[in-house]
Design a protein around this nucleic acid. Structure first.
Lengths: 325, 325
DNA sequence: TTGAAAGCGATACCAG
DNA sequence: CTGGTATCGCTTTCAA
């Protein structure tokens, strides 16, 4: 591993000059700068980020806190984050919290110990331990004192309910997610508003988690509890898919007997037969935009809006009935 | 942010003593060590890893190179990796290569610039740029000079072909994946062996990529090319699912008309109706075990086996016909 | 058993 | 424009 000293030596200048040339800071004569460049090339030198961040008290690393990397929504977010921060010369330290509150604290500590430049978090709580570094919340929205990027859950709830309402709804069941309590409740509120405006009666069905296993149990329970259900507004695509599977298993036809609308638009929704209609959230965009805001904060730029809400849209596929005239 | 100096001050000892106490290295009297501990607690001090790694020329970070984080196989691997390295006090720098060769090189450079302790890579090429740091290949197997953890692809290929062979195969089509050329070819070899032993005729169908979009196109093409196919050995679950969808869309019944076996066992396979029979790879284990080997290498321990092969197994679900007697 | 001091590799101030 | 040097926070000789 070459150091700046080696470069200085070979170029016949001081380390200070090499540093200036490297960072294009301060004055460097054309001649020196060429010598330095040549030396760098010859030695295949690249600066040690660790030394840099020790001095700057700030590294080129950004921490990302995710609640559950096996839910395909989050890898997409991560991809958006990565793409943006790579553009800006940063790298990612990943922290997969997986239900574990103490793990979250550990990660945040580790982030701090590594002088991360900032943190992006898609985990519900976090905020407390984070207050010492620049951070942006993804997907979750906590208070409007914090920076955040999330999609328009109320609108999403409305869209889902509207889609169902316009298509001979019959008995409607709204699944209410747990977890991201805030998000779930906002979505629910949106759905309820539409349902009530249309004077449709509906039932609520609460689900415990967004994990795979519990989704299958929940689907089973749902049909046991509401055997006559004709329209289901699911809390996310995993639940929607589970529900579809359970419906078909029971000999029901989708969408004729039961129609289903999901939430997220994960890549698998298209692969099902029938393919799942769902509220498409811009997962990648959430990550990308959040990273952008964070980078701007780190750079000390003024941010116009602290809380960005991205639009959602209904992706109509095969799991919804035909629209009534 | 407190430093070791603050601790030394408060404890009334020198920084050297604090350091020794911190690392339990060298001699520290009981009394000093207690004073230090108390000071650490009072100040809520935790050491700056950046300064540490500058001195040690080695950080508490491990780089992970992934080909495509949106393929659910890899998040599972990542989870295994994370769990193990967290146990050992390391954190993860993520590099999602996404088909992009130059990005891979950039990541490896960034890893080096951050003094990572080692690298885990699930990307085909990598090896060249990596030779300067301890690394372990995941999933892919290149040469047996390198450390690697992967599953038994040959066995997997055999299992898939056997499953099909035992169930009134009819016309068999074997999909051959691209990418991880080595893996694909080994699997293919395993399948071919079984197919030929059973004197079954089969067709090959090559697929370009493991991404979602191309999978759907491939599925369409497959049925256009082989309208009479009765058994499909898919190159992974995404392809298998696409094929199932396409079959159903064409009015074929699964498994009666067409039976399908996938590869990977990703969580969605169970959610389909019919659920997908597939060769289950221990994704989490691959990550976990690979991380374990890497940590041992970093610690300078002797590794018994350089190349670990994990077993695969057939998960029989609904997409296969009943077994012949 | 302890502390002073010399780095680790880079940056930035200050004098020249 | 350039170079010497203090500094970032920690570890590790080396002497005491």
């Amino acid at each position: 591993m070459k150091t700046i000293k080696d470069v200085a030596h070979l170029a016949g200048v001081s380390v200070a000059t090499v540093s200036r040339a490297l960072n294009k800071s301060g004055y460097v004569s054309e001649k020196s700068s060429q010598k330095v460049e040549a030396a760098i090339k010859e030695l295949d030198f690249y600066p040690n980020e660790v030394a840099r961040s020790l001095f700057q008290k700030k590294s080129k690393l950004i921490g990302l806190l995710l609640p559950d990397i096996s839910n395909p929504f989050f890898p997409l977010v991560a991809k958006g984050v990565e793409d943006k921060i790579n553009e800006m010369g940063y790298n990612l330290i990943l922290g997969n919290v997986q239900e574990n509150r103490s793990k979250e604290t550990e990660y945040i500590r580790a982030f701090a110990q590594n002088n991360v430049a900032g943190v992006l978090s898609a985990v519900e709580s976090s905020s407390n331990d984070l207050k010492n570094m620049p951070f942006v919340m993804l997907d979750r929205v906590t208070s409007d004192k914090e920076y955040s990027v999330h999609s328009d859950d109320y609108q999403g709830g409305m869209l889902a309910a509207t889609a169902v309402s316009e298509r001979s709804p019959g008995q409607v069941v709204v699944m209410v997610g747990p977890r991201s309590i805030s998000n779930s409740l906002v979505r629910l509120a949106g759905s309820v508003k539409v349902l009530e405006e249309n004077q449709l009666s509906y039932q609520l069905f609460e689900t415990e988690s967004f994990q795979f296993d519990s989704a299958q149990k929940a689907a089973y329970q749902l049909f046991e509890t509401f055997p006559d259900v004709a329209s289901i507004i699911a809390s996310n695509d995993i639940h929607a898919l589970s529900v579809m599977r359970e419906a078909i298993r029971r000999g029901l036809t989708i969408p004729t007997d039961v129609q289903v609308v999901g939430y997220d638009d994960n890549p698998y929704s298209k692969l099902m037969y029938p393919s799942l209609s769902t509220i498409a959230q811009p997962a990648y965009q959430i990550g990308y935009k959040g990273a952008e805001i964070l980078c701007n904060r780190i750079a000390g730029l003024k941010i116009k809006e602290k809380n960005i809400q991205l639009p959602v849209e209904l992706a109509i596929r095969e799991s919804l009935r035909k629209k009534e005239k």
